[in-house]
């Protein structure tokens, strides 16, 4: 089960939990299951998110594999100048 850490203002959608456990092989699966388990998160996921997996940032990379003990941070979709 990968550990998914949510930024603060997403927590109302998970019943206040800052971290949730999701069984997923890759990022795409993780986001889909996250949205299924917590429908309130879907609008943000649709708007765009990036993730950090074990410290490395992936702006897109939906097929990036996850290890069973991966720590995944949800981040707003990255932009730059």
């Amino acid at each position: 089960m990968a550990k998914v850490v949510l930024w603060g203002s997403l927590r109302p959608h998970t019943g206040g939990k800052a971290e949730v456990e999701i069984e997923a092989r890759n990022v795409q699966e993780l986001l889909a299951r996250l949205g299924d388990s917590y429908p309130g998160l879907q609008s943000q996921i649709k708007r765009g998110v990036s993730v950090s997996i074990d410290g490395l940032i992936y702006r897109e990379g939906w097929l990036q594999p996850l290890k069973p003990d991966s720590e995944v941070f949800l981040l707003p979709r990255m932009t730059g100048g």
């Binding site: 930024w7 603060g8 203002s9 997403l10 927590r11 109302p12 609008s43 707003p76």
Partner: peptide, 21 residues
């Protein structure tokens, strides 16, 4: 305003609230 709980009843110019930390 998105990202606040409970959802505001009145509209405003504040689109979203984020929190990190």
């Amino acid at each position: 305003t998105d990202g606040v709980d409970p959802k505001p009843k009145k509209p405003s110019n504040i689109a979203r609230r984020f929190e990190f930390g």
